[in-house]
Simulated assay, not measured.
Amino acid sequence: MSQKTRNVEIKARVNDVKDIIKKVAGLCNTKAEVIEQTDTFYKTENGRLKLREFKDGTGELIYYERPDVEGPKLSNYSKSMVIDPTSLKTVLQMALGAIGTVKKTRMLSHFNQTRIHVDEVVGLGNFLELEVVLSDNQKPEDGIQTAQMILEMLGVPASDLLSGSYLDCLKLL
């Protein structure tokens, strides 16, 4: 089943991962879920398409459109659960061609309508990602305000914000 939704997303470089994990735990008051993920990105004319593979052998096919600007940005996306990502990966590679892979260990926490990720990205380092999931009646400005409030609560300076994706950062190396 595919679902289409929107969120406001923001990424920031993390200099002190132990400190940010402690702050996120205090804010969320729950233990984070640890998720190992491998995202393979494919050539598309519009937006971005990635196949996300999980350690348990399942996956998600995710298409999204998001501007590459610093700070909070609106992301429109649709995703579909995949029970055989290995064979789908072969099909997508043959049909579209892969443009890169991002491997990460993600610590997922929730704060109200926001998914808070502390990511360790292979080859890049540690990052904080906020995804403020918008309801149908919410405006992007609502999500931007929420993301900025959480960044302030966590003490993340604007100078640490990223404009692009992890794949974009890896390509710059």
Results as ranks from 00 to 15, higher is better:
Ser78Arg: 10
Glu120Met: 14
Gln37Cys: 01
His117Gly: 13
Asn126Val: 06
Phe111Lys: 11
Ser109Cys: 09
Lys55Phe: 06
Tyr42Phe: 12
Thr30Leu: 06
Gly57Val: 12
Gln37Phe: 02
Thr90Asp: 08
Lys104Asp: 06
Glu131Arg: 03
Val132Ile: 13
Gly57Lys: 08
Leu61His: 01
Gly26Ile: 10
Leu96Thr: 10
Ser87Leu: 05
Leu27Ile: 14
Tyr63Cys: 06
Val14Asp: 07
Glu65Cys: 04
Lys23Val: 05
Asp16Arg: 12
Met107Asn: 15
Gly123Ser: 12
Ile35Cys: 05
Gly125Leu: 06
Gly59Tyr: 05
Arg66Met: 13
Leu51Glu: 10
Asn29Tyr: 05
Gln138Pro: 01
Ala12Gln: 01
Val118Trp: 08
Glu53Arg: 11
Phe127Ile: 10
Val14Glu: 05
Leu27Phe: 07
Asn46Thr: 11
Arg48Pro: 00
Ile99Asp: 01
Lys31Asp: 12
Leu49Cys: 02
Lys139His: 10
Ala95Thr: 13
Glu60Trp: 03
Ile10Phe: 02
Lys79Met: 12
Lys73Gln: 07
Glu131Tyr: 02
Arg52Phe: 06
Asp16Ser: 14
Cys28Lys: 03
Phe54Gln: 03
Leu74His: 07
Pro85Leu: 10
Gly97Thr: 08
Asn29Ile: 01
Leu88Met: 11
Tyr64Gly: 06
Glu70Tyr: 11
Lys43His: 05
Asp68Tyr: 02
Leu96Phe: 12
Asp39Phe: 00
Thr40His: 03
Lys23Asp: 11
Ser75Pro: 00
Leu96Ala: 11
Gln93Arg: 03
Arg115Val: 09
Ser109Gly: 05
Ile83Gly: 02
Thr40Arg: 13
Lys104Gly: 01
Asp19Ala: 15
Val91Tyr: 03
Glu60Lys: 11
Leu128Asp: 01
Gln113His: 10
Ala12Glu: 02
Lys22Asn: 15
Arg106Pro: 00
Phe54Tyr: 14
Thr101Ala: 08
Gly97Val: 05
Ser87His: 06
Gly57Ser: 12
Lys89Ala: 12
Gln138Lys: 14
Val132Phe: 00
Val91Asn: 01
Asn137His: 13
Val17Met: 11
Leu88Cys: 04
Val133Thr: 10
Glu131His: 04
Gly123Glu: 15
